[in-house]
Every structure is written in C-alpha cells, then in structure tokens.
Nucleic acid binder design. Structure first.
Length: 304
DNA sequence: AAGTGGGGCAACCGCCGAGCA
DNA sequence: ATGCTCGGCGGTTGCCCCACT
C-alpha cells in the first residue's frame, strides 16, 4: 500500500487553474500571507489541494516571479550550477532571482540538457543518494547522484560566519607574488579578512575559520568537523580558490542583489576555470564545485 | 485541410526531513 | 522514542501549441 494522499481528492478541482482561482488564491495570500497550505484552500474557498495551491503560488502567482526567456547568462549559470549541484533545482533556482525551481527544471530538461555534457561525476556526488537522471540524453550513463538538501542545512544553523585567514607570512607572499605577476589570480577581500590564492600559484595552504553561533566567540576554529564529517574532507584546501570565488560572489554577496552579483560570480568562476587549466583541469573543477556546494546550500545563513 | 510528432510548460505524484505532541 | 502532520523537493505526466508532411 502506498501512503495516503496528502488530502482528499474528492470534490477537488484538478488540472489547469482558472483565472478566478488564481485571483482567489492571490487575494487570500495578499490578505493573510502564505503558509498553512493545508488549511488555506478551505479558508480561501478554493476546491484545490493545499499542495496545489502552494505550487501555483510559488511557481506562477508570486509577484516576484520573473517571466520570459532565460538570458544567456542565466542559462550558462544553470549549466554550471547543475554540474556542481546535480538535479537540485531549488538550490539552482535560488541563485537565479525570480526564477522557480520548476522553471529551471523544465528549462534544463527541454533545452540545456542537450547543450551541456556531464563528463564525470563530481566528488560531491559520492556521498549522495541515488536518483534517476531526468535527462534522457544520459540514460546510458550512471544515475545522477546528489546530496539530499536538508541534511546539509543543519550546518547552516550551527555555523553562522565564515572567516578566512591567512598568516601574515602568506599575505606577504601573496603581495609579493601579486607584484611579480599581476595576472595571476589572487583574490583578496578585506571585508572578510580573507585572502585566498588560486591554485595556479601553486596552491598555498590558506586557512579559513568559522565562528559558531553558540560560541559567539572571536576565536577562530580551524579543522572542525560537522556531524562527524571533517570539513577538511569536504574542502580541498589546495583547491580552495574556486570555493572562495563562490563565497565572495554568491554567499557573502547579497543574494537579493541578483544579477550584478550573480554575473560577477560567473566571471570569477569562469576566470578561474580558465586560469586553472581549462578542460584539463576538469577533475579539480568538479571537485571544487562539489566542495562549494555545501556553502551554496546554506545561502544567506552564512551571512552576518 | 487534416494528421502527426515534438517541444514547452504547468501541474501532479510520491518521498523525505523537520517539527511537534 | 514514536507517530503524525506539514512543507518542500525532484521526477514524471499530460495538455497545448506549433511546425512539418
């Protein structure tokens, strides 16, 4: 026996929403706010399942929904995030302001999956559950494996701030190297006391630290673990540059600022892809993006 | 003009984890 | 500790439209 349906389907409308239903739902949510999806249909006088109402609101009726074709930049970002995150559409959509997971998913399944190739699984995928790939083009490949989203979200409740430190010596080294070769990919963010060096410079051992919410301490802790998983297992410090790019542009940056930051991140990511050796470095790229996925998961929870 | 196949997209389905009693 | 409810997610389905024959 399967599980019981989320709500009785008897007497409920199904299929496409009418303009009247849309108006009722919109008016109700504007007046009372969303949430309480189970009771909402009855309260609003809709003959719809609560889940259906939620989906309709989130995917279509929300005022901040951005309609229309995805821009080339958005398409490109979807491809890259998909390589990083797998079929975790909600996370990908979360990086595309105004776009819904359903829209991203549909777009991927109908268009981008044909454009994008997935040469190999990322390191990140190894700890994942197995799901069936939605992409028929890859049916002959191993099933896509992805992390379950919520397991990682726990992390964001425990860790509230990311601090990235370098020793003074390292900073001096980097300054020196920057003078020697300004084209190299050094990244410095004084606001967050982070200086991270790209692997193209040889991969120095930049350190980074975290402040826990509980401790609320100014002491930085390195080499901590989360739920028995050492952070060093997730991050490859030598390859941290790419992770930092994501942090700089996407996490620490205000996600609501949308395209400016979004594109900035894209440029940084692309820059490192190129600097890091392009296609020859694909394995590392996948590794790095896999590592950064855990940051992406937590979204603005990382921000203070 | 009618039939057919494919693309695009909205909506549904079932599973999972969090929260709560 | 356990069971239930709820919200959220990814996978899948089915309808509509359009291009092509």
């Amino acid at each position: 026996m399967g599980r019981s349906p989320c709500c009785s389907k008897e007497g409920l409308n199904r299929g496409a929403w009418t303009a009247m239903e849309d108006k009722i739902l919109t008016d109700y949510i504007k007046a009372h706010g969303d949430g309480k999806w189970r009771s909402l249909p009855k309260a609003a006088g809709l003959k719809r399942c609560g889940k259906s109402c939620r989906l309709r609101w989130l995917n279509y009726l929300r005022p901040d929904i951005k309609r229309g074709n995805l821009t080339p930049d958005e398409q490109d970002l979807i491809i890259r995030l998909h390589r990083l995150l797998g079929n975790r559409w909600s996370l990908i959509a979360g990086r595309l302001p105004g776009r819904t997971d359903n829209e991203v998913k549909n777009y991927w399944n109908t268009k981008l999956s044909k454009k994008s190739t997935q040469p190999k699984e990322s390191k990140f995928d190894k700890k994942s559950t197995t799901t069936r790939s939605p992409c028929n083009d890859h049916d002959d490949q191993a099933p896509t494996k992805v992390f379950r989203t919520k397991a990682i979200r726990l992390m964001s409740h425990q860790v509230r701030q990311v601090m990235i430190n370098n020793t003074q010596q390292q900073q001096q080294q980097q300054q020196q190297q920057q003078q020697d070769d300004p084209d190299q990919n050094h990244i410095h963010d004084s606001n967050y006391n982070s200086t991270v060096e790209s692997e193209s410079t040889g991969g120095s051992s930049s350190s980074f630290s975290f402040l826990s919410k509980e401790e609320n301490s100014s002491e930085y802790v390195t080499g901590f673990d989360i739920g028995g998983i050492s952070f060093s297992e997730i991050f490859d410090f030598n390859d941290f540059c790419d992770v930092n790019n994501v942090i700089k542009g996407d996490i620490i940056g205000n996600p609501d600022e949308s395209n400016t930051n979004l594109l900035l991140t894209e440029e940084l990511m692309l820059e490192n892809w190129n600097v890091g050796g392009g296609c020859d470095n694909q394995a590392n790229m996948d590794s790095n993006f896999g590592s950064s996925a855990s940051f992406l998961e937590s979204g603005q929870d990382w921000m203070i």
